[in-house]
Design a protein around this nucleic acid. Structure first.
Lengths: 344, 344
DNA sequence: CTGTTAGCGCCTTCAG
DNA sequence: CTGAAGGCGCTAACAG
């Protein structure tokens, strides 16, 4: 039933034209709704096409038109719930706009990202959705800028580059977290900061400093712990924090992953949350309410980020191309018990 | 800096040939290592290619060779941690084998899946990695069988179709769960069964029945609750279970998602786990240890599933194509406290 | 309104 | 060992 590979299956446009009794170009026009066509001709072509089960070759068409209707999507790690969510959102939006997604994982490093971009560009993607692992500006310009492929950044951006960007309200979110903890009476608040190679890492750290200052709270140098976005690293940083001479009484985790590491560490050393250490986190994981203790966090829907980024890209791909835009996705505080609030 | 779209950027093979002072066909041979070439010619071509930064057009090449080096990946829902994990595994394996992945989300329904497959086939993907939402056999044959595009199923399969399959050890895993609970003295064990449209749903349900029978435990009809793979549905099924005249004393959740729903329900009604209801789950989520109570479950790495499926596909794509194979990914029991085991 | 012509960029016979 | 020629399937420009 299955013939050998490498043979064409199904009819070509020429076949359709022949059956319909018209020229290939006319058939093409009829199928693509281009130009003025007599109703009969159009009908005949459509009939022939469906009769033969005609499926145009995307490859040939793209070669000719120089447009592939596919978008390259690059993230540091697809398996992460956040990026998987953005992918889902972007995929949906792009699909309804008639685009396909080609996915590449940069494995969280620059080389991987460069390789991913090169591959995608070779495939002549029409546009790029990119959460950068931090490639140098020059390389970006050289690779995608020169070609003019529209690119929208999300989550982790290259300041000022590309055709737009979508990031979370990192500043607001972090401030809300700090203020909430301060509202519980805490003054010695620490931060588990994520990777400073990424926008969300740097913005949240800066916002934390600003929020503390805004509240007139002293911030000790060793209360800011920078580490990778890994549960494991947050665990050891938390231990370090609690081993301090004057340990913090509360901590803000820059991501759900880091909050989990914090919880794990507290459990290991028998510290109680929120009594011994209050905790509030950026990112509200979907199982946040079922953790022990239930996690207080600022939440948002990752797919909104992907959807918004896809929207900007589609607009940038339009004719005329939309102007560059920078979007912020809002976040909202969800009070649970890790911060010291009472159970409902 | 960015020129207008629709123009070629970078050199073509012809350009390289000209600079190297040879014919295009020779340049092609040199770059692809085909045929016997004099060392000098080869060197000249390579030099010219790198000098011009030559990047072959994947489109043109594919049109000519009828091979795209891209694999279509179709899942019901990319945002789910499980599928995101399989994607990651598959992507890595395929990339090292020289393939790209084109992703489509079937949105958990048949129409979406058909559309996804059609799109992918139009793109002339070389192979397919598919976790089916349950398209009819006839449609599958008609669409991919006829074309002869190699297809490996994973997680959710079409029995006997395609060029191989990879699923979890659903039977073993479920039996282990039941036996463990029985070992704690439970006799009235219920099952939160997932969708019966999918392989993991049906296999785990059947395995549950078999395991209960094997232990000589009675199984009440209303102790088997079939629902979608959603936390919300598991929550209401759990309530229904505990509202029974003779409620179960233990429950097996067919997935982590269902286990979370169970925990949520118990919390709502003040039932204690494991005292009032013991719980053990298929799927060990990465935050399993931090839940309240810590979850006993059978675990595995989702990326292993994707990696294995990709491996089978690459083999099937080889020359000669490998024979059809069916793989099972092993799972292992992780004892924590939701089943009644003591904390370590 | 429709047909003819000419490639998109590459690879692969077929000659020499 | 190398060059010339043709075509993958489609669409755009140019005629009629």
């Amino acid at each position: 039933m299955s013939e050998r590979r490498g043979t064409r299956h199904g009819a070509t446009l020429a076949d359709v034209a022949e059956v319909a009794g018209v020229s290939p170009s006319t058939a093409s026009r009829a199928l693509n709704g281009r130009g003025e066509l007599s109703a009969e001709t159009r009908a005949a072509v459509h009939e022939a096409a469906t009769a033969l089960g005609f499926q145009p070759s995307v490859l040939a068409r793209s070669l000719r038109t120089r447009r592939t209707q596919t978008i390259g999507f690059v993230v540091p790690d697809v398996a992460s719930p956040f990026y998987a969510g953005t992918l889902k959102g972007a995929q949906g939006a792009l699909e309804t706009a008639g685009y396909r997604v080609m996915l590449m994982d940069s494995s969280q490093h620059v080389d991987g990202e460069l390789a991913a971009l090169q591959t995608l560009l070779n495939h002549q993607v029409d546009g790029l959705l990119l959460s950068t692992a931090g490639i140098p500006f020059a390389q970006f310009d050289d690779l995608v800028g020169r070609r003019g492929t529209p690119c929208v950044f999300f989550d982790s951006v290259l300041e000022g580059k590309g055709d737009g960007s979508v990031v979370l309200e990192n500043v607001d979110g972090t401030r809300v977290l700090v203020e909430h903890l301060a509202g519980h009476g805490h003054r010695r608040i620490a931060l588990l900061a994520g990777s400073q190679e990424e926008t969300s890492g740097t913005e949240r750290l800066a916002a934390f400093r600003a929020a503390m200052k805004g509240l007139g709270l002293p911030l000790r140098r060793d209360h800011v712990r920078v580490c990778a976005w890994k549960q494991e690293e947050a665990r050891s940083e938390t231990h370090a924090l609690l081993d301090l001479e004057r340990p913090p009484t509360a901590v803000v985790a820059s991501s759900a992953e880091l909050a989990l590491g914090c919880i794990a560490a507290c459990r290991e050393r028998g510290s109680r949350i929120p009594d011994d250490l209050a905790l509030a986190s950026f990112d509200d994981p979907y199982f946040g309410a079922l953790l022990d203790p239930p996690l207080t966090a600022v939440g948002y829907d990752p797919s909104d980020v992907g959807r918004a980024a896809a929207g900007l890209l589609v607009d940038a791909l339009g004719d005329p191309p939309a102007a560059r835009r920078e979007l912020r996705i809002p976040v909202t505080l969800v009070r649970r018990q890790s911060c010291g609030c009472e159970a409902a």
